[in-house]
């Protein structure tokens, strides 16, 4: 699915990631942890091609990212659901249209998908909010809406960057349950988080691998997690 081989990323002021190797196999569930500023978000951006590795290789669905055109990247992103800590919505569009955005950009008939969209809103507990604007939602609701948008295209991979960063523990658990459900459906999941409680909670319910970024490199975390 997504593979980094000795990948590095240099922001210009020094190397943030170095010799990073990572392979997300189909159906796997990975957590990526590490202190703030360690490079979790950068690694996530390498995975969804917002950044290109300055050294080494990144392959997404078998293609070397360096050889992909912007259209190729757009096509690949349709197979990757992305959840950001800040959610990134179009603030002028109601929730339903925001969640349907991946369908619109893919040229799919949104009207024909209205039933599925409502089912999805129900799944994330936002069926009563379909006409609300993003700024009218709470932090937890926005995160769940972002997750709904991430999975509307039935992607192969879901990448979540600090999805529980702005929500309370109850909402964290709820989001985790949704991610676990997706994994049980066969989706590949990568969650970047510094919330160790969340990782422990997942560990008790599903088979996960925990990676830690330390000294610019990615390592398999120990049993202490």
């Amino acid at each position: 699915m997504i593979e980094l081989q000795n990948a590095a990323y240099n922001y210009g002021g020094g190397e943030l990631l170095s010799e990073v190797s990572l392979k997300l196999a189909p159906g796997s569930f990975h957590f990526l942890t590490g202190p703030s500023g360690a490079g979790k978000s950068t690694l996530m951006k390498l995975c969804y091609m917002e950044l290109t590795a300055t050294a080494g290789q990144a392959r997404v669905f078998g293609n070397d990212v360096r050889n992909m055109t912007r259209d190729d990247i757009a096509e690949a992103r349709r197979r990757i659901g992305i959840v950001h800590q800040d959610c990134r919505f179009l603030d002028h569009l109601p929730l339903m249209q925001n969640i349907a955005l991946p369908l619109s950009v893919s040229g799919k008939d949104v009207e024909a998908e209205k039933g599925n969209l409502r089912e999805l809103l129900k799944w994330v507990g936002l069926d009563h909010q379909e006409n609300a604007l993003p700024q009218e939602l709470s932090g937890g609701e926005r995160q769940r809406a972002a997750l709904a948008r991430a999975v509307i295209m039935a992607p192969d991979v879901v990448l979540a960057d600090e999805p529980t960063g702005n929500v309370d523990s109850e909402m964290s658990q709820r989001l985790l349950q949704l991610l676990i459900e997706l994994n049980k459906m066969g989706k590949t999941i990568l969650v970047a988080t510094h919330d160790l409680a969340l990782i422990r909670m997942a560990k008790s319910q599903v088979n996960i691998r925990v990676l830690r970024i330390a000294n610019r490199r990615v390592q398999l975390a120990g049993a202490d997690l």
Partner: peptide, 16 residues
């Protein structure tokens, strides 16, 4: 730019 960034995030082609 924020709108463009969101559209790219969800897989929009430049032509779209």
């Amino acid at each position: 730019q924020q709108v463009i960034s969101v559209l790219r995030l969800v897989g929009a082609h430049d032509s779209y």
